[in-house]
């Protein structure tokens, strides 16, 4: 039974991850334009991936904060908008080749490995690349990852009732893209933290029958 709602705006990488046999029993795709409280009342957590439609998320912000007020978890990755989040995200050039050209300078320089999502991860598994930084976060926020300039990459707050974890990493999108081979580690930790269920420790696979006429939409 699904425990995590993946807010989804029809992007293929979101779909690839959520419909992969390894994760599909734990994630429910929630099409953002149809998002309402009833569709997620039985869920423990929400995931809002990179490449989301920020304008529609702003329209639906009350649903997200009501979910947090119920003591549940929300995970937000990539960019965000101050129109619905009390934090300032700013764009930065993406460096996804640092491990080739300058492997001693990853985009994240400090990580709190005591957080359940990061426990047991290697530095390489805890950061592949970032999409921007946070230059302002809520005063209640606990900082979990920063870059070598001190910019915030990952933060968490309990201010809204449940737990909001925000990062400029993009584990859901990149795991769907499947060009980074170590992401099962991060996404499995994230999934276990969000749902309380540990995914099977094996590499993500694709079910081609859910593409085309068999698409689950």
């Amino acid at each position: 039974m699904a425990k995590i709602g993946l807010i989804f705006n029809g992007v293929w990488s979101h779909y690839a991850m959520a419909t992969a046999p390894k994760y599909r029993d734990l994630y429910r795709l929630l099409y953002v334009h149809d998002l309402d409280t009833n569709a997620m009342s039985d869920l423990d957590a929400l995931a809002i991936p990179f490449q989301s439609n920020q304008a529609v998320l702003t329209e639906k912000k009350a649903i997200i904060y009501d979910f947090l007020r119920a003591g549940k978890k929300v995970f937000l990755e990539g960019d965000s908008s101050t129109a619905w989040l009390d934090a300032q995200w700013e764009d930065r050039p993406v460096n996804n080749y640092w491990w080739v050209t300058d492997p001693t300078h990853p985009p994240v320089s400090d990580t709190n490995y005591n957080h359940p999502v990061y426990q047991g991860l290697s530095p390489r598994q805890a950061c592949w690349h970032t999409h921007g930084v946070y230059t302002r976060v809520p005063t209640s926020a606990e900082i979990l990852q920063t870059n070598d300039l001190g910019d915030v990459i990952t933060w968490q707050t309990h201010e809204y009732g449940g737990t909001l974890l925000a990062t400029t990493l993009d584990p859901i999108v990149e795991h769907g893209v499947q060009q980074i081979t170590h992401l099962d580690n991060y996404v499995d930790r994230l999934t276990a933290w969000l749902s309380g269920v540990q995914p099977v420790p094996e590499r993500m696979t694709i079910d081609t029958t859910v593409y085309g006429e068999g698409a689950l939409v």
Binding site: Y15, Y211, E213, A215
Partner: peptide
Amino acid sequence: FFTAWVPGNQWVMDN
């Protein structure tokens, strides 16, 4: 294009 909206052609993911 994971849904079947492009006439005659279909994209499928594969890893």
